[in-house]
């Protein structure tokens, strides 16, 4: 989509619960939002780390699961027609002469926006890297943490490491393409769907793939091109020819590119804001939810919702400086109800 700039009032970085509720509060003051997230769906930590676990401290919900909260928020913000851009990470932010911003993602989408709301939570989820020497030198050449193009694996000697759904799914999907495929896991038990496990075991029995219980030991290759991986197994070190390696150890969070935008930080990890507007040291850039810091900050969903409400008032003044803001309740204001599609 490069070349087509998207013009908007607000770009929200992060579709976690706090970013989602910000769409609601910004919508009530007529601001249009685009929401960007690295993950492939909304919900942030709630959807990625604990979809099934109950949360007990959301006001008026004695109990709700991480996924349930996400689904409800999506329903609540639906009237405001925010546009979502998943599977991409915001990498750059540049302040333009007129005070607005140019925001770019790693998928080359470009946004021109008057306000940025950083709701990036614990940071960006990034794949866990295996602790083998020199793995960096092979990354994106012959070691990948995700499959973007299946064709990159055609006629390759492929080693997949892991015991979850990603490892199993890609074993099944890439088996027909790869020259050889070896699945490696620390134990002979898998936490993926039973159906995938059965299919994988059938392939092993037919001799189409290898399964080895063990762990990554070291890599061998040159100029980023793997030739062999050595595994630690109960029977000692074992070499397997490999031209492609896919390690699947799940995700972990890092502050990521936002750290380099020149915003004042707290302990190098959180973005400092004031408690009236939740604005950062750069006017026009706000930070709400787990990513921000101020004296007394609590990393609770509840606090993030409050921060979003106050932030929206300040954002409104930036986008529409001439409009008067009238304080209204959703229960009694027919104007607000029209926006919500209920009047």
């Amino acid at each position: 989509m490069s070349g087509n700039e998207i013009v908007t009032d607000v770009v929200i970085i992060g579709a976690g619960p706090v970013g989602l509720f910000a769409v609601f509060e910004l919508g009530l003051v007529d601001l249009k939002c685009h929401v960007i997230d690295i993950l492939d769906r909304p919900g942030g930590q709630c959807a990625e780390l604990y979809p099934e676990k109950p949360i007990y401290d959301i006001p008026a919900f004695p109990e709700i699961s991480g996924q349930g909260l996400t689904d409800n928020l999506m329903k609540q913000i639906q009237p405001f027609g925010a546009e979502f851009h998943f599977n991409q990470m915001v990498t750059n932010c540049e302040k333009l002469e007129d005070g607005s911003f140019r925001v770019t993602t790693d998928a080359d989408e470009v946004f021109l926006t008057k306000v940025i709301v950083v709701a990036a939570g614990g940071g960006s989820f990034q794949p866990k890297r295996p602790p083998v020497e020199d793995v960096e030198q092979y990354e994106n050449k012959s070691v990948f943490y995700a499959v973007r193009k299946m064709d990159d694996f055609r006629d390759q000697d492929l080693v997949i490491v892991g015991g979850g759904d990603s490892a199993l799914d890609w074993t099944l999907n890439l088996e027909p393409l790869a020259r050889s495929l070896t699945l490696v896991h620390r134990r002979d038990q898998f936490r993926g769907h039973a159906d995938s496990v059965n299919k994988m075991r059938a392939l092993v029995e037919e001799g189409k793939i290898n399964f080895i219980t063990g762990q990554l030991g070291r890599l061998e290759g040159e100029n980023g091109q793997l030739t062999e991986v050595y595994l630690k197994t109960a029977g000692g070190e074992l070499g397997v020819p490999a031209t492609r390696l896919l390690p699947f150890f799940g995700l972990t969070m890092k502050l990521g590119p936002v750290a380099d935008w020149g915003l004042d930080l707290h302990e190098n990890a959180l973005i400092k804001v004031d408690t009236e507007r939740f604005e950062t040291s750069v006017p026009g850039i706000f930070a709400i939810g787990d990513i921000n810091w101020y004296p007394g900050k609590l990393k609770l969903i509840l606090s993030g919702f409050h921060e979003g409400a106050l932030m929206s008032q300040a954002a409104k003044r930036i986008v529409h400086p001439d409009e008067k803001i009238v304080f209204q309740y959703t229960t009694s204001s027919s104007k607000l109800q029209k926006k919500l599609g209920v009047a």
């Binding site: 866990k128 890297r129 295996p130 602790p131 892991g162 015991g163 979850g164 896991h185 620390r186 134990r187 038990q189 936490r191 762990q215 990554l216 390690p247 150890f249 799940g250």
Partner: peptide
């Protein structure tokens, strides 16, 4: 816990 231990690369 066993399932989560699958995601430590230095097991």
């Amino acid at each position: 816990e066993e399932d989560m231990l699958d995601s430590v690369a230095d097991y």
